[in-house]
Amino acid sequence: MATNTFHCSVITPERAVLETEATFVAFPAWDGEVGILHDRAPLLFKMGAGELRVESPEGNQVLFVDGGFAQMVDNRLTLLTEQAKKIAEIDTAAVERALAEARKLPMVSDAEFAARQRAVKSGEVQLHLAAKQGR
């Protein structure tokens, strides 16, 4: 059976992390996970920090993405994010250090609070994902 696939690319400012045909992708939107199948209607979503799962005929991949934007047009899903890592690339020690730093950030103004919230969330999610992979 010719499986229905769509193109999925994950792009960071530094490089294209992933370019693949996919049968299913689940990405973390800002308010919850969104699953994408082929022929999905066009969407433009804000992403949160979390787990990106890509299922493709060649195999499944799991990445960590830290915010950004998702766009689906004409069976092309583009995920723009400022940070994307394979789970195996997560350096738990470094993340723990960053997380400890983040927890010490001031949270007086709204902006500071939001920044701290973001940094902490990003760290926690990375640790969670790493733990899930049994590392």
Binding site: A29, D31, A41, P42, L43, L44, K46, F69
Partner: peptide, 23 residues
């Protein structure tokens, strides 16, 4: 293209424009 937006376009722009500056 008729997009489905989440959150609404105005809020998305709030995020997109700083990202553009950074990029």
């Amino acid at each position: 293209v008729e997009y489905e937006f989440s959150p609404d376009p105005q809020q998305l722009l709030d995020e997109l424009l700083p990202a553009t500056v950074r990029a």
